[in-house]
């Protein structure tokens, strides 16, 4: 299934750094999401689009992860050649990630 089926999120920009939140729609799915959506997987998902490191911060009480992607905005919002220089659409891209469906809850 797609991450989009379990989570929602929003991308923000500062300089050449993008941050993308991933928030469980149902808090019960948070642990499953956190297990499968790691910083390494996010880095792989974006491939050459992200030139620097990816860090993950966790806010379990909000069912949220926050990914910080360095070198993700083509040199920075104000000088990027991209059509979406802020990388606003990166959240939609991340939510396309395929993850296994969570096990049924008893």
């Amino acid at each position: 299934m797609k991450l989009r089926d379990l989570a929602h999120g929003r991308a923000g920009d500062k300089g050449d750094v993008s941050n993308i939140s991933v928030i469980a729609r149902d808090p019960a799915d948070f642990a499953w999401i956190a297990r499968h959506v790691t910083a390494e997987r996010v880095k792989r998902h974006f491939g050459a689009m992200v030139t620097g490191e990816v860090r993950r911060h966790e806010l379990p009480q909000l069912g949220a992860l926050n990914f910080v992607l360095h070198g993700a905005l083509g040199g920075g919002v104000t000088r990027s050649l991209a059509l979406d220089p802020h990388g606003k659409s990166l959240s939609s891209s991340l939510l396309e990630m395929e993850i296994p469906p969570p096990p049924p809850r008893g």
Partner: peptide, 13 residues
């Protein structure tokens, strides 16, 4: 509120 809390935030701590 949760989406906006993390908007343009790096380390939430």
């Amino acid at each position: 509120c949760t989406e906006q809390l993390l908007y343009e935030v790096h380390d939430p701590a």
